[in-house]
Design a protein around this nucleic acid. Structure first.
Lengths: 341, 341
DNA sequence: CGCCTGTAGGGAACCGGTTCCATGCAAAAG
DNA sequence: CTTTTGCATGGAACCGGTTCCCTACAGGCG
């Protein structure tokens, strides 16, 4: 417990300075001396205090991660990717679960993040405000954001509007004309969220094709039960039923499929469904989706952040991550007979 | 950025000692002086260094959390519960995602946890060995385990064997005689895992009722796709098809239900399914299950750990958390005609 | 009026490492 | 044989707070 490096030094018969050099591997130390010090350290069960080291080096080997949800597939996957990458590089991952609209937001940014505990910060799906970002950057703490691009800080993103357009166009290309969009709850129409961008992409595609938009909201947010409820609701009236659904994320899409099966509506016979994400259940539900790689995004965020910490100037501010259409059996050509108005 | 407490003190015209007392609120400081110091701190944007404080107080306000999965409902839920409880109490949550059988295990316990960075450690579903636990306890780092009880450290658990027995008996009570158990992959038969305990409970119930056990393993582990695959497999042969399934967790149960629907087997008409956990999707799938409260378990783990950190001696080593049977529509009386051998 | 007590505040040691600088010494270079 | 160079090590300052101990003063009490 109370074993400090001075104890190790005393036991090995050297000075603190030499003991430190021997254990850290920096500077000149004779091979014999190094062995002796390491032996002494092992004997008394010496464990270094990272706090003491941080104090003088200014490096904490600790990264703060801010994330709105842990228990949603996409976010959980990113988080696993980040943690794994950081652990491999000898960094700790300190977690802040900041629900959207949480009153803790100020507290987390002011009190928890703006201390000298972190070498850097990764914000996922949080879209920091300029003030929040500025506060950290002024303290010399680099930050990387994953999600909608934020001005002034390095952002990893997918082209959400483009991807939503692509998904909608896939349905249009299959001959669908009544295409509903089911998304999660929206804060405000002007907010810079992934959510609004996907809605925009849908609207663009519909407008271009001269089709009328039909927007539904899953009140219970971007989850499978949320999609289920919205799906039941959207399909309850046989007259006004769409022939296809573009879901803002795969959880909603899966919820819609489950709802459809429950009601006895065949997918894709009566209803085509497409989502976004590439959820782990997508294959099981034969879900057509736009697949992105959250794990890889987490890894990329770590790589970029550590580069920034190392002082490498970043060239591009917004990095676009890959996403691709994966066609499975939840989408099919519109049955023109059933689709007639 | 380099604003230390000495700068604050200078600006307020007091000593470091007084500045420290004014900011921390400990010791005697005149009200006027306190205001002046706080004002000075605000003006130069002073942020305290927790590392420096930790160095002298020995407290880090940081808890290490070891968890095998992030992206499984039960674990994600516990983690959210822990993070929330810790944040409310001013603690940081540092995360280690230690996959079962990972080669990082030693590295995490030796290098990452056994430093002076943590006031305490929570291990979830990891079942630390006596050596791993001893190493930390010897360093004076309290530990709480959630999952199968571990000798020597405070453990939060549910009666896994009892709960499995209860679930199996529920099916037996409905008249089922061919009851299959679908669980995840097992490391070794003697390992002290939640998994093995649930298997034991099933076997006890079956033996007592004089029924023959039928054990299936979801090779792809305790996940919905794993349950789906195992379900497809278990139901493919109409002759050998069980009339009920006891799944080791709700993810598997849900996978089995999805598989059944796919094949055209009615639940609960042709097949009764029961799980364990109380998954967020359980209601959507009308799943009968034994519900536990992972969020509350996370909170309890935090409460207990902080009590141990505060030096309160713990009376009970193993704490049993509540779990209760919730009957929904995935289980029904056995159709005796179809069940006849 | 002297003494005790409670409140304010300063000086300095200390937590446990890292690192700058100086010193010593042996081998290589001149 | 002297001078330079390179390796090895020790002493001490330092990172940024907290806390112990000591002094000082004002008011209450005997």
């Amino acid at each position: 417990m109370g074993s400090a490096i001075a104890d190790v030094a005393a036991r090995a018969g050297v000075s603190k300075a030499t003991a430190s050099r021997a254990l850290s591997g920096k500077g000149y130390v004779a091979e014999k001396t190094r062995m002796r010090v390491q032996q002494a350290a092992k004997e008394i069960g010496y464990v270094a205090s990272p706090n003491a080291a941080s104090l003088v080096t200014g490096q904490t080997q600790n990264i703060g991660v801010v994330i709105p949800f842990i228990n949603r597939w996409f976010f959980g996957e990113i988080l696993e990717g980040i943690e794994e990458a950081l652990l491999n590089r000898g960094y700790d991952t300190t977690l802040y679960n900041l629900h959207p609209g949480s009153s803790d937001r100020d507290r987390v940014f002011d009190f928890f993040l703006a201390r000298k505990r972190f070498d850097g910060v990764i914000a996922i799906g949080v879209e920091p405000t300029p003030e929040e970002a500025g506060r950290l950057l002024r303290l010399g703490i680099p930050m990387v954001s994953v999600g909608a691009p934020v001005a002034g800080i390095r952002s990893l993103t997918i082209d959400d509007a483009g991807v939503a357009r692509l998904a909608t166009e896939h349905l249009i290309g299959l001959g669908h004309r009544r295409i509903a969009h089911i998304g999660g709850e929206i804060g405000g129409p002007d907010e810079n969220t992934v959510h609004n961008k996907r809605l925009d992409g849908y609207l663009q595609a519909m407008t271009r094709a001269g089709l009328e938009a039909e927007i539904r909201t899953a009140r219970t947010a971007m989850s499978v039960p949320g999609g289920y409820d919205a799906g039941i609701h959207a399909m309850s009236d046989a007259m006004s039923r769409p022939s296809a659904v573009f879901a803002a994320c795969d959880e909603i899409a899966i919820g819609v499929i489950i709802a459809a099966r429950r009601i006895g509506i065949r997918v894709p016979g009566d209803l085509s469904v497409i989502g976004i994400d590439g959820h782990e259940y997508a294959e099981m539900f034969s879900l057509t989706t736009i697949e992105q790689q959250p794990r890889a995004q987490g890894l990329a965020a770590v790589t970029d952040l550590l580069a920034a910490i190392a002082g490498e100037p970043s060239t591009v501010e917004v990095v676009e991550m890959p996403a691709r259409l994966v066609v499975r059996a939840s989408t099919a050509h519109a049955d023109l007979g059933a689709d007639a108005v």
